[in-house]
Amino acid sequence: MNTTSPRDPTDPLDARNRPARLTVGVVGAGRVGPALAASLQLAGHRPVAVSGVSEASRRRAAALLPDVPLVTPAEVLARADLVLLTVPDDTLPGLVQGLADTGAVRPGQLLVHTSGRYGTRVLDPALRAGALPLAIHPAMTFTGTPVDVQRLAGCSFGVTAPEELRLAAEALVIEMGGEPEWIEEEARPLYHAALALGANHLVTLVAEAMELLAKAGVTAPDRMLGPLLGAALDNALRSGDAALTGPVARGDAGTVAAHVGELRAHAPQMVAGYLAMARATADRALAHGLLKPESAEDLLGVLADGTRSTGRPAGSAPTDDEEPGEPR
């Protein structure tokens, strides 16, 4: 961007034809902001300022953006053509309003937030001050280390932008090695819920699985789970619900009951999550014809209350005068 020549900041042709490099600032040196700024630096842009409060934020900024000064948020806006607002979702509206109210926002300044939940409407106070609003959310989990910059290559970004700024938003994403995916303003919360369901809950599931394997005496739970989970993820992405396997999809009520019994004994805090995920799996397997209704009755009974449909405690054996699976 040539910031010294006269231009119409809302002209899409002008946005497309800005060959000069931008000065970049980061407000909120969490895990995301420094990585995005470092990625833009690789594309030739120039990080000039970053704000961070905690010691962890300062360390991240020093590791990913060495020699870039730590300053106040207002000073970041004073120095940068492009400002990344990389703060928690609940903090973003108040931050934008405060920056606008204090006159920190400059006309023609690109103001980019990375919240998955919000589109550009949250930036309206800055828009009224003359800023150019963009919502660019990387669909990636971040560690706060240099590996994040490499992971941006091929990463999808959920992008929301005014029509006249779509080319500018697309260019920024591509420069970071990403792929833009256009998300309508009204669809942002649903889009973000989908990502949180898939990624955040996956971490919980994997951590719980490793914990249970360790309790079962497995010395390297991560090594055992790695190939299994990698194959399951690949199959799910390729085939969706057709990739469902395991005792729930087969309708093995006795096995599921045994699982619940073991969880009650060794990890009672995991029972509710197991039952909820098993019920969701059963519903999807039924809907897609993988689980036959006649095989589902006992299974659904187990999932309804964590006991076998016979009324025995989950995982208990039948009595001598009772066949396995026979109702009393």
Rank of each mutant, 00 (worst) to 15 (best):
L64V: 10
L22M: 10
L303C: 09
A216Q: 12
L82H: 02
P69R: 01
N2F: 10
S316F: 02
P180M: 12
D90T: 08
V96I: 06
G240L: 08
Q269N: 14
A285M: 11
G28D: 02
I183F: 05
E55W: 07
D234F: 07
A272H: 07
L197A: 14
V203S: 12
P247E: 05
M176Q: 13
P69N: 09
R121F: 01
E323V: 15
V105I: 14
A126V: 06
V105M: 08
T143Y: 03
G30C: 01
M270Y: 06
N235I: 04
D234K: 15
A280Q: 15
K215V: 10
A242E: 15
L290N: 03
E297G: 04
A278V: 03
A20W: 12
L123E: 03
P9Y: 06
D321N: 10
A20F: 14
A236H: 08
E163S: 12
P162T: 02
A38F: 04
V159M: 03
A62F: 05
R60E: 13
A296N: 10
E211R: 11
L134Q: 02
L13C: 05
A216T: 08
T72Y: 06
D305W: 13
P69A: 05
P12E: 01
L290P: 03
R117P: 03
E185H: 03
R223A: 15
R7C: 15
A304H: 14
S316C: 04
G28R: 06
D90K: 14
V271H: 07
V68L: 01
D148G: 10
G108Q: 12
V173G: 03
A15Q: 14
E297R: 11
L190P: 03
L77T: 03
L64M: 15
A280N: 09
A135I: 10
L111F: 09
E294I: 01
V203M: 08
A161N: 00
T23K: 15
L165W: 05
D11M: 10
P138C: 14
E322M: 09
F157K: 08
R128M: 07
P125E: 11
A169K: 04
D241H: 06
A214I: 00
R106N: 07
D101Y: 06
V256K: 04
L286F: 10
A56L: 14
E185M: 04
P69H: 04
G325F: 02
H192G: 07
T23P: 11
Q150P: 00
T114R: 05
Q41F: 06
P247S: 15
T114G: 06
R79D: 08
P88H: 08
T114I: 09
H259C: 03
V218H: 11
A100K: 01
A280R: 15
T23D: 14
V218W: 09
V105G: 11
D234R: 13
L263Q: 08
R308Y: 00
R188V: 03
Y274F: 11
A38E: 08
V218Q: 13
P227V: 05
V53T: 15
S309D: 03
S51H: 13
V48F: 05
A43Q: 10
P189S: 04
Y274A: 06
T120E: 00
A282M: 05
V83R: 07
D89I: 01
G130D: 05
G30F: 05
V24S: 02
R106E: 13
P318R: 00
D89T: 07
C155S: 13
D101M: 06
A296W: 05
T281D: 00
